[in-house]
Computed example of a mutant assay.
Amino acid sequence: MLDISQIISDYGPWAIFMLVLIEDFGVPVPGETALISAALLASQGKLPIAWLLPAAWLGAVIGDNIGYAIGRLGGRRLVLRYGARVGITDERLGRVERFFARRGGVIVVVARFFVGLRQLNGIVAGIGCMAAPRFVLYNALGAALWVGLWGFGTYWFGEHFSKALKTFGPTALYIAAGLAGAAVLGYIVWWCWRRRRRPSNLS
């Protein structure tokens, strides 16, 4: 089993580049988890964020393009024949293909945020013969959004959380978290109450 924290500590941005790259052409490794962990370390000053984010983006773009090439050159039959070793089944592939049949370009962007879709979207785009320039464009955009959310977003949150902890202490943060949780719970209760009343208002 991979010790992600140790790999990140030993190899830094290079580890993120390789893990994300490998995950993005179908191999089930925890690339997203590694990116989040590395971004948290960067927020503590243990990794250079200026190298981490480009490394993750390049890994994502190159990995998906490798997947695209596999799908384009190998075809569905070859992908299923050898992909079973890394969890690419006919059922999973078919599910992603149905998504692509509706809106391929949008799926390339959005798929990156979902486990399963992220690993297969390049392969399916290749099998479906999506035009290479179009795939590269949407893939680069999706990778940038994904790295922005899980890389920079985690870094920003971690950095500000550490500062808030030093400034206000843990008690104030627990109170803030409790208030936020109460607000979310209150909204859910209000939404459910409103939904239950709606049929009676229509009758």
Rank of each mutant, 00 (worst) to 15 (best):
Lys46Arg: 14
Ala182Pro: 03
Leu80Lys: 14
Thr33Met: 12
Val106Met: 05
Pro13Met: 13
Trp14Cys: 01
Met1Trp: 10
Asn121Gly: 02
Lys46His: 12
Gly31Met: 08
Val184Ala: 13
Asp24Gln: 15
Phe157Thr: 00
Gln44Arg: 14
Gly75His: 08
Ile107Leu: 04
Ala39Gln: 06
Gln44Trp: 06
Ala50Pro: 05
Arg98His: 05
Gly12Arg: 14
Leu145Gln: 09
Ala39Gly: 05
Asp64Ser: 10
Ala131Glu: 14
Ala39Glu: 00
Arg81Asn: 14
Val147Trp: 04
Tyr174Glu: 02
Ala34His: 10
Asp24Asn: 15
Pro54Gly: 12
Pro28Glu: 10
Val61Gly: 01
Arg103Asn: 10
Tyr174Arg: 01
Gly148Tyr: 07
Met130Lys: 04
Arg77Ala: 12
Ile66Glu: 12
Ala140Phe: 04
Ser5Trp: 06
Leu179Asn: 04
Cys192Gln: 09
Arg85Glu: 00
Lys166Tyr: 04
Lys166Leu: 11
Val108His: 03
Trp146Val: 03
Ser203Ile: 06
Gln6Ala: 15
Ala143Asp: 09
Glu91Val: 09
Gly12Ile: 11
Leu185His: 01
Arg102Ser: 04
Arg196Ala: 06
Pro170Asp: 10
Ser9Val: 13
Leu78Trp: 15
Ile4His: 03
Ser203Phe: 05
Ile7Cys: 13
Gly71Trp: 12
Asn121Phe: 02
Phe152Met: 15
Ala125His: 05
Met18Pro: 00
Ile36Ser: 11
Asp90Cys: 01
Ala42Ile: 09
Leu185Thr: 02
Asp10Leu: 15
Arg92Met: 03
Tyr138Met: 12
Leu19His: 13
Pro28Phe: 05
Gly74Leu: 14
Leu40Glu: 05
Trp191Gln: 04
Ala180Cys: 05
Ser203Glu: 10
Gly74Ala: 13
Val106Pro: 00
Leu179His: 03
Gly94Thr: 06
Leu19Ile: 15
Phe113Lys: 09
Pro199Arg: 07
Ile36Cys: 10
Glu97Phe: 05
Trp191Glu: 00
Glu159Val: 02
Glu23Tyr: 11
Val108Ala: 03
Arg198Pro: 01
Cys129Val: 03
His160Gly: 04
Leu165Glu: 07
Ala111Ser: 10
Trp193Lys: 07
Met130Val: 07
Gly181His: 04
Val184Leu: 12
Met1Ser: 15
Ile7Asn: 15
Leu73Val: 03
Asn65Phe: 02
Ala84Arg: 14
Arg196Ile: 01
Lys46Leu: 10
Phe157Leu: 05
Ala56Lys: 11
Leu80Arg: 13
Tyr11Gln: 14
Thr171Phe: 03
Pro199Leu: 08
Gly75Trp: 09
Ala183Gly: 06
Gly87Cys: 07
Gly181Ser: 11
Glu23Ser: 08
Leu141Cys: 10
Val79Cys: 08
Arg197Ser: 01
Ala84Glu: 13
Met130Phe: 00
Cys129Trp: 03
Ala50Ile: 15
Leu149Ala: 15
Val110Lys: 12
Gly104Leu: 02
Arg197Cys: 01
Tyr187Ile: 03
Ile88Asn: 08
Leu35His: 11
Phe100Ser: 00
Arg72Tyr: 02
Ala143Cys: 11
Gly83Arg: 00
Val124Cys: 03
Ala164Tyr: 07
Leu149Gly: 12
Phe25Val: 11
Trp146Gly: 00
Trp51Val: 05
Arg112Trp: 09
Ile4Ala: 13
Glu97Gln: 11
